[in-house]
């Protein structure tokens, strides 16, 4: 099965008196790498939460699955909140996420955790304590969990933030493999250079959709400046300007 197309139609999201999303309409084509960019507080993560059914919103969000029923949705969060001293190995962490059998009884041998860890360059680190990993290694494990089972739609929330050079190379390979397999990839990212290289389409979001199209056309300096200054957000504008 290839991934679904996603339709956002006039999506509004308000928290208290703050408008987070204002009439957001966009279409994510099936099997594409679609990047969401915008300033902090621009609504990128909120749009993802709305897509995942975790934020009350108005408007329509529809997934058009190509087959008879819905496929597998995977999500890679920016981070996980947990006690760093918890006696939890990488394998334990994956077992907690991916299997029904209680993780303290050990990994379900029907699930190939080793292969997923291998794909993110973490082979041989299954017995390492999860809390003792570096931020980049933890991010790789979060990517690995999204591969079990093979996803049809994967939602990535700033997955490159903590990655080092080697991790970024692995991420690029992974993105290419998933894309080749027809997986729909919705990718929140702040690194515009990587979006230019890797995404097939990009949407600029700052409460509203400010642009939507091919990254090489859309991410011109003027558009990026508009995106980050549509609502005054000095820090974002300064970062781009620098």
């Amino acid at each position: 099965m290839t991934g679904p197309a996603i339709l956002f139609d006039a999506v509004d999201l308000t928290l208290g008196r703050t408008v987070i999303l204002d009439g957001v309409s966009l279409r994510v084509a099936a099997g594409t790498v679609h990047a969401l960019v915008g300033p902090n507080g621009g609504g990128k993560s909120s749009l993802i939460r709305a897509l995942l059914g975790q934020a009350p919103h108005r408007g329509t969000i529809r997934l058009d699955w190509p087959g008879d029923g819905p496929g597998t949705v995977a999500y890679v969060p920016q981070s996980v909140e947990f006690d760093r001293g918890l006696p939890l190995t990488v394998e334990d962490f994956l077992a907690v996420l991916c299997q029904r059998r209680p993780a303290f009884l050990g990994p379900d041998r029907r699930i190939n955790y080793g292969a997923a860890l291998d794909r993110v360059g973490m082979a041989g680190k299954a017995r390492r304590r999860f809390g003792a990993l570096s931020g980049g290694e933890r991010q790789r494990v979060l990517l690995a969990q999204a591969l079990i089972p093979a996803p049809d739609l994967i939602v990535l929330d700033e997955p490159m933030t903590a990655l080092d050079e080697a991790g970024i190379a692995i991420f690029k390979t992974l993105l290419a493999e998933l894309s080749a397999a027809g997986t729909t990839i919705l990718w929140v990212e702040h690194d515009l250079a990587q979006v230019r290289r890797l995404a097939t389409r990009v949407t600029g979001l700052n409460r509203r959709v400010l642009f939507d199209g091919h990254p090489m056309e859309m991410l011109s300096p003027e558009r990026v400046f508009d995106l980050f200054s549509a609502v005054p957000r000095r820090a974002g504008a300064e970062r781009i300007a620098s």
């Binding site: 969060p77 981070s79 909140e81 947990f82 907690v96 996420l97 299997q99 993780a103």
Partner: peptide, 18 residues
């Protein structure tokens, strides 16, 4: 039977819901 799910909910509720 719910051990993993109870644990996961405390790690990252959004990931758990997915």
């Amino acid at each position: 039977p719910l051990f993993n799910r109870l644990l996961l909910a405390s790690f990252n509720p959004a990931l758990a819901r997915v």
